[in-house]
Design a protein around this nucleic acid. Structure first.
Lengths: 214, 214
DNA sequence: GCCGATTATTAGGAGTCCTAACCAATGGCC
DNA sequence: GGCCATTGGTTAGGACTCCTAATAATCGGC
C-alpha cells in the first residue's frame, strides 16, 4: 500500500490555504465595494484605524506591496478626504498618514470584513478553533521569519512572550509584561505593547511552538 | 475576570487568515512574475493544467471573478501562445479553453507556488498538520456553502464521501466509490471522480465534520 | 419560428502594481 | 563646513485587474 507521504499532505494544506486566500480576496473586494473603496484602499484604511498613523514605507511593508502602490492609493483616499498626509517634524523626509474623522467612520463600517472570513469557522468545536488559532499564528510567524510578510506586533515574535512557560492546560504560555499566563485563545496578532524579538531569537523560538496538539 | 469569548477567538482567527491571505497574494505575485505572468494569468494556467480544458464561465466561477476579467487575461495568454480558444461542438456559445504544449510547460514551472505556502507548515507536527488539513477543508466547505467560492471537486462536497463512517483512527472516513477508508491526510480538494452533493446534502453534512480533534 | 435565457465579448473607467528615475532630507565622514 | 551615499517618497510609464453595462450569438422551449 502507498500511504500519502508528508509532501503530499503539505501540498494539500497549501492548496486549501490557497483556496481560502481566494475566498478572502473575494470577500475583501465585496466588502470594500459596498463603501465604494478598492481592496487596497480598504486594507490601508483598516491598518490605519487599527494601529494609528504610519509612514508610507510602513504601510507598504505590512501590506506586502511597494511604496509607489501605496502612494497611488493614498492619493485616491486623500482626494476623498478620508486621510491626510503630513510631514514628520523629526524627519522631514517622512510622511505621516492620519485618518480624518470621516476616514475613521468609514473604517468602522469596514471592520466587519475579517469577521466574514471568521464566520466560516462557526461550525468548528471550541477546541478545534483554539488549536487552529495556535497553528495559524505559528504559520504567520514562519512566514514572517521567511520574509514573506511583515507583522510587527504579534505575540509569537514578541520579546515578552514565553511560549509554553507553564506545563499544564489551559494557559500554557506567559506574557512577561503583563506577568500573566496566556491561553492559546488569548494569543494576539496585534498587541499594542509588543516589543520585537531579534531575528535570531525568532528562529530559535519557532520550533518550540510546534508542540502540543490538544 | 474576563475570559476571551468566542467572538474574540473567532476574530483572531479571521485576522490570522487575513494575514496568511496577504502572504499568499504576495507569493503568487512573486511566483508568477518569475515567468513573466500576472497573478490572474498564473491562476488560470494552474487551473487549466490541473483540471483540463474549461469554459470561460467555469474559470470565472472557480477564480471568483466575473467573466470579462477572465476574458481579458485569456487575450494576453493567447497572444503569448500559451493557450487556444475553440468553440464547443455541442454548444456554439461556449468557448473551450485549452493549454498548448508551451502553456503546459510553463504551468509545470509554476506549480511550485502553493508549495511555498505549504512550506510554512514545515515545523508543525504531523498530528497538527493532519488536524489542520481537516479543519481547513471544513472551512473551505463552509465557504462553498455560503457561496463565497466555488469548489467543484472536493471530498467534503462529494456524494461518495462518508465522513466518520468508521469509528476509530487513523482512517475514520470512507469513499463509496473506491470503497476504501480515508484518513484526514487523504482528503482531497480536487478529486477527478467527484460527484457533487446537492446543496441540502451539503448543509446537512457540515455539522458532522466538526467532531474529532485528535 | 419566435423569445427569453445563457455564454462570451466589447467598451469604458478606476485602480493595482511593478520598475526606473527623480528629488529632498539625513547623517556620517573627512 | 561641505561632500555624499543612504533613506523616504513621489512621478512616469506600462501592463494588467476587475467591475458594470451594453452587444452579439446561440440554445431551448413552446
Amino acid at each position: 500500500m502507498a500511504p500519502p507521504d508528508g509532501d503530499d499532505l503539505d501540498a494539500r494544506i497549501g492548496a486549501a490555504l490557497a483556496r481560502i486566500s481566494l475566498a478572502a480576496r473575494h470577500l475583501l473586494q465585496r466588502s470594500a465595494s459596498t463603501v465604494q473603496l478598492s481592496p487596497m484602499q480598504a486594507l490601508i484604511l483598516e491598518r490605519l484605524a487599527r494601529q494609528g498613523p504610519a509612514g508610507v514605507g510602513d504601510l507598504a511593508a505590512t501590506l506586502a506591496v511597494r511604496p509607489p502602490t501605496v502612494s497611488d492609493s493614498l492619493d485616491a483616499l486623500e482626494r476623498r478626504g478620508l486621510l491626510r498626509r503630513t510631514t514628520d517634524d523629526e524627519d522631514a523626509r517622512r510622511v505621516v498618514v492620519r485618518l480624518t474623522v470621516r476616514g475613521r467612520r468609514l473604517a468602522a463600517e469596514l471592520a466587519l470584513w475579517p469577521d466574514l472570513l471568521a464566520g466560516a469557522v462557526s461550525r468548528l468545536s471550541r477546541a478545534d478553533r483554539e488549536a487552529l488559532l495556535r497553528v495559524l499564528l505559528t504559520i504567520v510567524a514562519e512566514l514572517v521569519a521567511r520574509g514573506v510578510v511583515y507583522e510587527a506586533r504579534m505575540c509569537t515574535t514578541c520579546d515578552y512572550f514565553r511560549p509554553f512557560a507553564h506545563r499544564g492546560w489551559p494557559a500554557p504560555h506567559h506574557c512577561a509584561l503583563l506577568d500573566a499566563p496566556l491561553a492559546d485563545a488569548a494569543l494576539r496578532l496585534d498587541c499594542p505593547d509588543h516589543r520585537p524579538l531579534d531575528r535570531d531569537g525568532l528562529v530559535r523560538r519557532l520550533p518550540v511552538l510546534q508542540q502540543g496538539a490538544p
